[in-house]
Design a protein around this nucleic acid. Sequence first.
RNA 1: GUGGACGUAGCUCAACGGUCAGAGCACUGGACUGUGGCUCCGGUGGCUGGGGGUUCGAGUCCCCUCGUCCACCCCA
Length: 422
Amino acid sequence: MSITGIRGFNDILPEECAVWRRIEDEAVRVFTAFGFSEIRLPVVEKTELFLRSIGETTDIVEKQMYTFSDRHGESLALRPEGTAPLVRAYIEKRLYAASPATRLFYMGPMFRYERPQKGRYRQFHQIGAEVLGTESPMADAEALKMLETLFVSLGISGVEIEINSLGCPRCRPAYKEELKGFLADKTERLCDNCKGRIGKNPLRALDCKTPGCLTATHGAPAVSDFLCDACGGHFKGLRSALDMLGVAAKVNPRMVRGLDYYTRTTFEVTSGAGTLGAQNAIAAGGRYDGLVEELGGPATPCFGFAIGMERLALLVDRNRVEKRPLVLFLAMGDGAGEKGVEVAARLRDAGLRVVADYAEGSLKSRMKRADRMGAGYVIILGEDEIREGVLTVKDMTTGAQEKIAQDKIPALIKGRSQGAQA
RNA sequence: GUGGACGUAGCUCAACGGUCAGAGCACUGGACUGUGGCUCCGGUGGCUGGGGGUUCGAGUCCCCUCGUCCACCCCA
């Protein structure tokens, strides 16, 4: 076998790229309308950045990061997510100085060493957006509205938004203790995984789907009952803002996220569509009010989310890919090939999408190919046309054809395809 | 990291341990000298993922390995 690609690292082929392109274009359009600006960040960062942001005991850091030493022995990592690098840049480039609230979005590859499966790959792609510098629950609500707007514009339906509040460093410890107390006499029922993390992060048990953990956590106290006044008010503000914006979100008091930096609002967007396999989360995020300060910046409350590109692509309608009509230019006979590429170039200058076909073969087989390539029009340049100083244009959908002067072709094709679309 | 299913032509899949591994689609040529879609006829295309073993004989059975898929775990 010759050299193959790496497990979990996929080639995105042209057909799939058309879908991705559509998603990306739509995301740029929607996010821009909400006042977000694009930022492009490196794919590699110092390992320490992720240790300090995501949390040293999270699965991502413990077993999913691609880390390596560079030639000077410094530990670097392929980014497993986009928020930490963005916050690093925000602090390093002092973006907070420009305006009180900064809205940024990014898209690109992320890397996690996991066992690949449907909707889960070692190199995967995210589109993310972050609002930095505002504590207002309106920011959370608007970001969710933005997400919903994107999904609608992509024709995706049947998604469910779940929200929760995890509280803040002031109120969460009390809840943690309460939960630990509740689980204390039920530890035996927890799965090994949850037994291990009960000390550090007992909240994870709420999210666990193993039967034992489900029964053990049944009737457990809810975070929402332990929120401090400020967090409770924030969560209430979020819910009423969502109502106002017409965003349907369900409160799920058991939803816990896997990254340590989340505070207050967390959310997850899932789809019931079977095409997603077991990975039903297509977007998720939340508030991380302490992260910027934690990483050495000024205290800056933030909200952000990331969308899983591969998963979203599984949900978009493949049949609706925008296409300008393709014109296939066929030249036949001595010298016609050269003349052909030149005429094709002029037609492109006039705004048409033209492929010059100078392959061998009978006209019949070349017509057949043109048809299979999806050509809307075929232009033929052969001996007859050269002699008469015209080109033959055939409309492949109607089958009609006519001989016409070269400079009249763009108008003819544009006129017809516009008429056809209307 | 754990468990399961599966690797045969570019794609989807056949072939009881027994001739030369087949079919459909795709590609290509022709029937139809410069006109596509339909039909018919021909052609190209395979180290049966790789390695080892059992057997007179292996695509088929056994072991190893690589890969894919599914699930757990985790997450987007």
